[in-house]
């Protein structure tokens, strides 16, 4: 498999970016896990834009909501671990992109659209979810976990390559 080679500074920045996004995901996941009252219902009901019907529907089915809460919490934690520790990083990166796409589509920062939860900045079309999504895309194209990360120990080495 052709993997990009990096200069040291390039590698360093990419790894820092990966770990930072991982930290962000992991912390979000754990905070939700530790709060027994956390549920996605408010966020989902507050959805606007083209796909709002879909997200609002998710909120109104109590059974489905439990599944969504569970998937969101553990999705965030596993994606965060994957990025931070560089373990199954490729899967974590793509899964993170899917999750961010959901967040973005449920709360698109469109002109004239207001949300219950005030944001700390000002956004039009482009928001932090979109930037994070694009950042993960970069990480998907320039993977580093086979160099710095547990993937190096899992995928990189086998007896064959060691005998080179």
């Amino acid at each position: 498999m052709n993997r990009p080679t990096f200069k040291n500074t390039q590698l360093t920045v990419l790894v820092i970016l990966r770990v930072a996004i991982g930290w962000h995901f992991l912390y979000e996941g754990f905070v939700k896990l530790l709060n027994p009252n956390w549920t996605a219902i408010g966020y989902l009901v507050d959805s606007r834009g083209l796909f709002s019907g879909l997200f609002q529907n998710m909120a109104t089915h109590p059974g489905l909501l439990d599944v969504i809460d569970f998937l969101n919490i553990w999705g965030l934690i596993l994606i965060g671990m994957g990025l931070m520790l560089g373990i199954f990083s490729k899967a974590a990166t793509y899964a993170g992109m899917v999750l961010l796409l959901f967040y973005y589509c449920s709360h698109p920062p469109l002109l004239g659209v207001e949300y219950a939860m005030p944001s700390e900045g000002n956004y039009l079309i482009v928001n932090k979810n979109l930037i994070l999504f694009l950042s993960l895309w970069i990480l998907a194209l320039f993977p580093t976990s086979h160099i710095i990360g547990l993937d190096r120990l899992i995928f990189n080495r086998n007896e064959k390559t060691m005998q080179e």
Partner: peptide
């Protein structure tokens, strides 16, 4: 391999 493979584990510890 070991050092580079586990390089980011301390960050997880900090978190």
């Amino acid at each position: 391999d070991i050092i580079k493979g586990l390089a980011t584990v301390p960050v997880a510890g900090a978190l």
